[in-house]
Write a protein that binds this DNA or RNA. Structure first.
Length: 439
RNA sequence: GGGGGCGUGGUGUAGCGGCUAACAUGCGGCCCUGUCAAGGCCGAGAUCGCGGGUUCGAACCCCGUCGCUCCCGCCA
């Protein structure tokens, strides 16, 4: 018999159906058993009058919570039942996979175990409907990203994650044995997406894994995460990149609200706001002044940079002044940006760069890139880099590379911000950190 | 790498110098013709992360250690 989803039962009153799912609760009384079954679409009560089939009743009595079962029975409209006034009268039951008892933890208990323990048993944790909803939403987010890009003539690339030389600083790279030599896991597709500009692809994106060997112990860092990268050609400044990003994000938010607005209210408890464009833009110099005027003291060694507390303070300012959740911080000092960021013409101490802060969290870094090879090489040397290992990269700009720029965004950080989660471990399928390699 | 916090039955917590360690939930058993966050009764389950010290006495105070967590640094 074909399986019926629980959400579709209302249309099958008085018919015999098969449903498959997990036994969420068993209320075993003297004469009657009530089984609450869950599939990804909802919950339903199954009733079994024990004298009808004593051996079946016995089998059900031994079932542990969260067992995977299939049930055949008649759908009854029953106003007495609180759960959707619907009930299935049990005819037969197949135990597809019995759950051992006790469970490592009950995903439906009022209080949940600590995040670390839930990660040990992540597949149980993921059975919580809020998590199913989260990954449905993430699927829509990625679909909306691609919809926007393909409508706007972007090409999708997949750059290698095994690389032969450190691309930027080198300190944050994982290294591994690669036959007779050393290889590294890519810490960003930066150079390869710029190569696509030299290849004449004009507009590209990539969604793929990124590795960072930073021993970071925070609620927003991972050693492996999904990077969302984009790069476009023939731009005049970093403002062109910001324009694309804000329109793209607005599109993503509006699609998510369209498809999941109700779900977000139900599971996350708030109404999703689609951001207006343009997003506020604040040059870093001005941002530092704003912080000063609000009495926020930056650490002394910051020289034009802003610490996470400062970013949250700026976000609060933007929320008050513009009622906006997003803000571009622009024109960062050369000292805190990589060598390939293009500098401002009228002030060579600043770069054509930006960060996007969303609800106080940094989710993006972007810039116009320096595409003139002589200046690029000079800037690399200034930053203390040896030209040897990056010669292949410098070569990209020798034979007609258009002016270009782009940004990188952390997918899980976006999910964190969008769904108001306090820890990135809640926003990712499986977390990888300095002390977490399993499951 | 630096700093703060926490570590008590399976899970979540209370206890913070005199405990035979409490509560909730879960688990096992019995009872209950219809429950629905089911209910009632009974029961099992913790040498209070580990090591050392102070004390007549330590889950509780001190030191060390390990683990987790958050913040800073770094970033997405």
């Amino acid at each position: 018999m074909e399986r019926t989803l629980i959400k579709d039962l209302r249309s099958k009153i008085d018919q015999t159906v098969k449903i498959s799912g997990w036994l969420q609760t068993l209320r075993d009384q003297k004469k009657i058993q009530f089984l609450i079954l869950r599939d990804t679409t909802g919950l339903v009560q199954v009733a079994h009058w024990k004298p009808n089939d004593e051996s079946l009743a016995e089998k059900i009595s031994t079932l542990g919570a969260e067992s995977a079962v299939s049930v055949i029975g008649k759908v009854i409209d029953n106003p007495v039942v609180k759960l959707n006034q619907l009930e299935i009268q049990l005819e037969s039951l197949v135990v597809e996979n019995a759950a051992e008892s006790p469970l490592p933890f009950d995903p439906f208990a009022e209080t949940l175990p600590t995040l670390d323990y839930r990660q040990d048993w992540r597949y149980m944790d993921l059975r919580r409907p809020v998590n199913y909803a989260l990954f449905q939403i993430e699927t829509t987010v990625e679909m909306a990203m691609r919809e926007y890009w393909t409508k706007n003539n972007f090409i999708e690339i997949h750059s290698p994650k095994l690389t032969g030389s450190p691309s930027e600083s080198g300190a944050e790279l994982f290294s591994l044995d690669y036959f007779e030599q050393k290889a590294y896991l890519a810490q960003s597709p930066q150079f390869y997406k710029q190569m696509a500009m030299a290849a004449g692809f004009e507009r590209i994106f990539e969604i793929g894994p990124v590795f960072r060997a930073d021993p970071s112990f925070t609620s927003r860092h991972m050693t492996e995460f999904t990077g969302v990268d984009m790069e476009i050609s023939w731009i005049d400044s970093h403002d062109d990149v910001m324009k694309v990003e804000e329109n793209w994000l607005q599109y993503i938010y509006s699609r998510v609200k369209e498809v999941h607005g109700e779900q977000i209210k139900e599971h996350f408890g708030f109404e999703l706001t689609v951001p207006t464009v343009p997003f506020p833009r604040i040059p870093m110099r001005e941002a530092v002044e704003i912080l000063k005027s609000r009495g926020y003291t930056l650490p002394a060694d910051k020289k034009g940079d802003i610490d996470p507390g400062g970013e949250r303070e700026i976000a609060a300012y933007v929320k008050e002044k513009f009622n906006h959740d997003f803000v571009f911080l622009t024109d960062w000092p050369v000292s805190v940006r990589p060598f390939y960021h293009m500098r401002l013409e009228n002030d060579p101490t600043l770069t054509r760069s930006f960060d996007l802060i969303a609800n106080g969290l940094e989710i993006t870094t972007g810039a116009q890139r320096e595409h003139r090879p002589d200046i690029l090489a000079k800037q690399a040397i200034e930053k203390g880099l040896g030209l040897g290992p990056i010669q292949y990269y410098l070569d990209f700009f020798r034979y007609g590379c258009p002016p270009h720029g782009g940004f990188g965004l952390g997918l899980s950080r976006l999910m964190m911000v969008m769904l108001n989660l306090s820890n990135i471990r809640e926003a990712v399928y499986l977390f990888r950190g300095p002390t977490r390699l399993t499951p």
